[in-house]
Simulated assay, not measured.
Amino acid sequence: MGIYGQDWASYQPAQPNTAGLSFAFVKITEGMTYTNPEWQSQRDTARAAGLVVGYYHYPDMTHAPETEADHFLSLAQPPPGEMLCLDWEGYDATNSAVPHATQLAYKEAFLRHLKAAAPHQPVGLYCNLDYWQNIDTTGFFQDFLWIATSGLPAGQPGISAGWLFHQYSSNGVDQDYCHLGSTAELRSWALGFQPTQTPTPQPTGPAWPGEYLSVRTPMLHDGNVQTWQQRMRDRGWAITVDGWYGPDSASICRQFQQDSTAHGWPLAVDGVVGPDTWRATWQRPVS
């Protein structure tokens, strides 16, 4: 069980080989001044192959984390189902000189700010074992942890935290493992951060009054007619709300019945407001 992926930076080609992969993380930014020149082509290659796509940012922890998070997000602009990640490590001279407490504070602030700015995307943390064990003290990784323990078997990173991704090799190109069972399962998880679409409730309306509204002699005039006319007017029909059911009301009724039938609400086109037409008057969505 489990699926495999890679993470790409400018060291990799613009169109990496995607055979056997389910996901790919693409480096976009480093600090405030560097952008991976291949990232868009790498992203498009991953998308075209049906991979689940993630993006990561390598920090300059002498900067404000909020500023770097905003810069990263402004370029990534991920659609639903794509991931965002902080590559939290400091192997360069600038970051290695930053106190550990400052590095930890940067991580916490970056992740929280990025999540607030992109609440419907999975936001996670990448770090190596040294950072996880010796610099981190909170265990906070926002939505997912991507842990690097190269040299250990895929899926056996040697930590007890609830990781989702494991970078198990960096030979040539970084190789990654996800413990979910399929590409579809990972995509479903990533899409699960989108807000639930709640259908707009349609008004049920008053119960049919038991009276067929139709043209007759003498002309029908009562409150039921007026109630129906008002609802039709609310739906956008140019009808006079006077309580009289005459030829004009019958004509509009027939037009409504024809339109309803054409839109999947089959009604008898007879100009008579019976129980089915009455119900459709309130319950059929306004188009």
Rank of each mutant, 00 (worst) to 15 (best):
99 P>L: 09
99 P>Q: 07
100 H>A: 13
103 Q>F: 07
104 L>A: 15
104 L>H: 08
105 A>D: 02
106 Y>G: 07
107 K>R: 10
108 E>H: 15
108 E>W: 14
112 R>H: 10
113 H>V: 11
114 L>T: 01
115 K>H: 04
115 K>G: 14
118 A>R: 04
119 P>Y: 01
119 P>C: 11
119 P>H: 09
120 H>G: 00
121 Q>F: 05
122 P>N: 01
123 V>W: 00
123 V>L: 00
123 V>Q: 00
125 L>K: 12
125 L>H: 09
126 Y>M: 05
128 N>S: 05
130 D>M: 05
131 Y>H: 05
131 Y>W: 14
131 Y>T: 04
132 W>L: 06
134 N>I: 08
137 T>D: 12
137 T>V: 13
137 T>R: 14
139 G>Y: 09
141 F>K: 14
141 F>T: 13
142 Q>H: 15
143 D>W: 00
144 F>C: 08
146 W>R: 13
146 W>S: 08
149 T>E: 13
150 S>Q: 11
153 P>F: 12
153 P>D: 12
153 P>R: 07
154 A>P: 02
154 A>N: 01
154 A>I: 03
154 A>E: 03
156 Q>R: 15
157 P>S: 06
158 G>S: 09
164 L>I: 01
164 L>G: 08
166 H>P: 02
168 Y>S: 07
169 S>E: 11
169 S>H: 06
173 V>L: 03
174 D>G: 07
178 C>P: 00
180 L>A: 07
180 L>Y: 12
182 S>L: 05
183 T>F: 12
183 T>W: 13
184 A>H: 01
186 L>K: 01
188 S>A: 15
189 W>N: 00
189 W>D: 00
190 A>S: 01
190 A>C: 10
191 L>D: 06
191 L>F: 04
191 L>W: 00
192 G>R: 01
193 F>A: 00
197 Q>D: 11
197 Q>L: 15
198 T>N: 14
199 P>I: 03
199 P>Q: 02
200 T>Q: 14
202 Q>R: 14
202 Q>S: 10
204 T>D: 11
207 A>V: 12
208 W>E: 06
208 W>A: 05
209 P>S: 03
215 V>F: 03
217 T>F: 08
218 P>F: 10
218 P>H: 08
223 G>M: 08
223 G>C: 07
223 G>P: 10
223 G>E: 07
225 V>T: 03
225 V>G: 01
225 V>R: 00
225 V>I: 06
226 Q>D: 13
228 W>Q: 06
232 M>D: 02
233 R>L: 14
233 R>V: 10
234 D>C: 06
237 W>A: 06
240 T>W: 02
241 V>W: 01
242 D>S: 01
242 D>E: 08
244 W>G: 09
